[in-house]
Write a protein that binds this DNA or RNA. Sequence first.
DNA 1: ACTCCACAGGAATTGAGGGGTG
DNA 2: CACCCCTCAATTCCTGTGGAGT
Length: 405
Amino acid sequence: MPTFGEDVSIFANEDALREDWLPETLPEREAELEQLHYALAPATRGSTPHNVFLYGKTGQGKTAATSAKLTELEDYAENQADLDLTVVTFSCENITSSYTLASKLVLDITGSEPRGYDQHEVFSRLFDALDAIGGTILLVLDEIDNIGMSDDILYSLPRARSKGQLTEARVSVIGISNDFQFRDNLSPKVKDTLCDEEIEFTPYNADQLTSILRRRVDVGFVDGVVMDGTIPYCAAKAAQEKGSARQAIRLLYKAGELALQRDRESVDEALVDEAYGVLERERIEDGLRNLTVQDTLCLAGVVSLECKDAAPGRTKHVYREYERVSDMTGDSTLVQRRVRDHLQELDMQGFLMMQTHNRGPEGVHYYTFSLNVDLDTTLAVLADNPRYVSIADTLRTTARRHDRL
DNA sequence: ACTCCACAGGAATTGAGGGGTG
DNA sequence: CACCCCTCAATTCCTGTGGAGT
């Protein structure tokens, strides 16, 4: 039994390895920071900063860069008597439309949420709230791609002042997006205004990830704990996937924790490999647990194909399995059209692998689906839930018969 | 050559569920 | 209370297209 306080010293400052740690410098993002700087600079001259749109995959330093630059700007503004600057940062997680975004923004600023009103009224309350703050307002909308096609607010915000809906405040929008396509799908009128400055964050390569990791290790770990080759190894592993700094750091942190558990005094490549496995499993487990009933049943349809060694299978075949599975649980059976949508969502979340098969350049195409995560783990997680335990058992038996386990 | 089928995906609609106003 | 706002999952209908069958 471990005792508190008797840990081998591995971590010097564990906070530096956590998700929410914001580095003070981002040498790998010099160019992007400079672009951001010039976009915001008008604020220091008493004018409205440009609207900026930052895009790039997760873990590329978009949020960190924005936060670093804005802190710098806020510090500057603090010492200038005639500069009234407010930064409002808002994460659009779970926000699916302009309407909810506006209403949640009002909640964020004023503390009360307008609901049940029409969109026009909600927008105008948002403008009132912004006017009440006054001065120059930088509105940072993180993960803005969540609002999808409904982008009215992105059109209205930058124009509110010229339309007289805002009188006291000057508002600039800084949109941060993980989704490259989001930009293309914006309506043309929004693209015009919001995207007058665009900053793209391309994925870090292995060398850049190595430098980033090295700085974190210097702060986070005790000197000499992390072996020489471990950092580049970790970086290479992360670069191979998405080039995400977040993932690279998470990996190293997990490896450190494993080292602690094992009473090791150093972190080596084998531990990184192990940490990788642990994180992957956690990812699947969390993901599966958060799926809705129908999502899970659709997934189970594909799992069923896998167990019969019939994957990848076409939509039709998945649907047949889905019908069997949902019969077993007694849940309502959806129409095929809807199941297709669920399958596509599961593909986007990485649980399924959806392949397009084309026949002819433009015309008829069809999809096949296969499981993109470990079958055994998936069955285990399904069996954890009483609702699906009978499915999991049946499928496991089938899988054994077909030598899939 | 013609018709029918399979399939993806867009659009419109519905009904439940959250909440408003007068 | 009647009637309004918006969201979300789901259904229904429709369109476009190549391939199979006749």
